[in-house]
Amino acid sequence: MSAVLKSQHQFRPMQMDDLDAVMAIEPHIYLYPWTRGNFSDSLTSGYSAWVLVRNEQIVGYSLMMMVLDEAHLLNLSVDKDFQKQGLGRLLLEYMVETARSNQMANMFLEVRSSNISAIALYENMGFNEMAIRRAYYPAADGREDAVLMGLAL
């Protein structure tokens, strides 16, 4: 990632006060968004939750649960107006480094089987497909499969 892209953005821990900004993004990028309660519960549970800030505006966020030596990426999102600028990769790199710095051995995630660009990003970052979780996500025509991916840290 370029030094310019990194210098324009900063990471900081997500706080309850950030949820209005996060909830302004979430329903615009997902047909089945997380609820405010999902985010609040994640923060209360002590998950690793981060916002990506540019010019004092939250442009992305990510949450990860770490248990024993495994990290599970729960949500990685970039505001629709800031997509296709390398910010998803920047967020993912940050979360992988966070997992490594917390001595996690592996990182896992699920991604919609139809989300080809996200799957390409994860594969480019070294994640491998491990399994298919049948009918994991809600979808307009019923349910959609998830691709379970993993990365050895």
Rank of each mutant, 00 (worst) to 15 (best):
E56Y: 02
G88C: 09
N102T: 10
S113V: 13
D79Y: 01
M66F: 01
S114T: 15
L90W: 09
Y94G: 01
E70M: 07
N75F: 03
V111N: 06
A71M: 05
L74H: 01
Q83D: 05
K80Q: 14
R100P: 03
N55Q: 14
L92A: 09
G60H: 06
S101A: 07
L68Q: 10
E70Y: 06
F108C: 07
L90Q: 09
M104C: 15
A105F: 06
L68N: 10
E110S: 06
E93S: 06
M64Q: 11
V59T: 11
E56D: 15
A105N: 14
Q83V: 08
S114P: 05
V111K: 07
Q103K: 14
Q57C: 05
T98W: 00
L76K: 02
S62C: 14
Q57V: 10
E70W: 04
M104V: 13
H72D: 15
H72G: 02
L92N: 03
N115F: 05
H72R: 08
S77R: 02
Q85M: 14
Q83H: 04
N102W: 01
R112A: 14
V96L: 11
E97D: 12
A99I: 09
R112K: 15
G86Y: 09
T98P: 00
L91E: 04
A99T: 08
S113N: 02
S101D: 11
E110H: 08
G60I: 12
K84F: 08
V96K: 10
F82A: 02
L90N: 07
V59Q: 00
L91T: 06
S114A: 13
G60R: 08
A105G: 14
M66G: 02
G86V: 13
L91W: 03
N102G: 03
A71C: 10
S101N: 13
S113K: 04
A105W: 02
I116V: 14
S114D: 13
Y94I: 00
L68P: 00
V78F: 04
E97P: 00
E110I: 08
V59F: 02
E110P: 04
I58Q: 01
V96G: 03
K84C: 12
N106Y: 08
R89L: 09
M107N: 09
L92M: 15
S101W: 00
L91M: 15
F108H: 10
M95H: 07
F82P: 00
K80T: 10
V111G: 07
T98Q: 12
F108P: 06
M65L: 13
V78K: 03
